[in-house]
Simulated scan of single mutants.
Amino acid sequence: MSSTTADAASSTRAFPDDIPHLSGPGAAIRQVLAAHFVRDCPHIVEIGGHIRPVTDYLTHAPLSVLSVDPKTPPLEADELNGRPCRVRHLARKFQEVDYDYAPGSYGLVLLGYSLKPFGSREPLGQLLFGLIDNAGIVVLEYPPALERASSQVPSILTRPSLEMVCSFDITIDDPEIRDTPYARRRFHVLRPVAARG
């Protein structure tokens, strides 16, 4: 799919690969919070946007937005929020994509963190750690009940290049998620140690 304007309605469309427990209205708070924390970044890189990338929730005018997830609906656009912006949603594994950003120029968004290996390439490795270490800000969100995520996140939080900006838990009380172990979510926002003000 190609478009000249990122489609703001995509967050409300029905998708065949939808995650039912994240389809209620309260679940969107995850993208809203992420958009707040990356609002000063000229470039946005999202890994794991699934079918609801952070793109539609951004309120500023970034130069580019890249969202990578095997299940994201592909999209290319040259405008966001009425301003020029290179928008790309790639339906690929993050390990298949080349990232060429100046250190500190992008915000890295990892919502619903649940990265898996790609062939022999593990999710926690040089590529991911390079993206994390060179980001201007990192927004990481996941359900602690998901073992794959909770076992990997400590390796990210203990990166010596990063410091915590804030950390908090939320509970999504939508009927779609209320009775699942995934209603409780944990957010971490990190920045480079050198960014201390």
Rank of each mutant, 00 (worst) to 15 (best):
S2E: 14
S2L: 13
D7R: 04
S10D: 10
S10T: 12
T12R: 11
D18L: 11
P20V: 08
P20F: 05
S23N: 15
G24C: 09
G26H: 12
G26Y: 07
A28T: 10
R30D: 06
V32I: 12
V32R: 11
L33F: 09
V38A: 06
R39E: 07
C41F: 01
V45I: 15
G48H: 03
P53I: 01
T55I: 12
Y57H: 15
L63Y: 07
S64W: 03
S64I: 03
V65K: 04
V65A: 03
S67G: 09
K71A: 12
T72D: 00
T72V: 14
P73W: 05
E76W: 06
G82Y: 06
P84V: 11
C85L: 05
R88G: 11
L90H: 13
L90I: 13
A91C: 06
V97F: 02
V97P: 05
Y99A: 08
D100P: 07
D100R: 15
A102H: 08
P103M: 00
G107F: 03
L111A: 08
Y113N: 04
K116F: 07
P117W: 06
F118C: 13
S120E: 15
E122R: 15
P123S: 08
F129M: 03
G130E: 11
L131P: 07
I132V: 15
G136I: 05
I137Q: 03
V138F: 00
E141R: 04
P143W: 09
A145M: 10
L146V: 11
S150T: 06
S150K: 05
Q152K: 11
Q152H: 14
S155D: 11
P160T: 10
V165T: 03
C166T: 13
S167P: 00
S167C: 08
F168M: 06
I172N: 13
D173I: 02
D174K: 07
T180K: 14
Y182M: 04
Y182V: 00
R185Y: 08
L190V: 02
G197N: 05
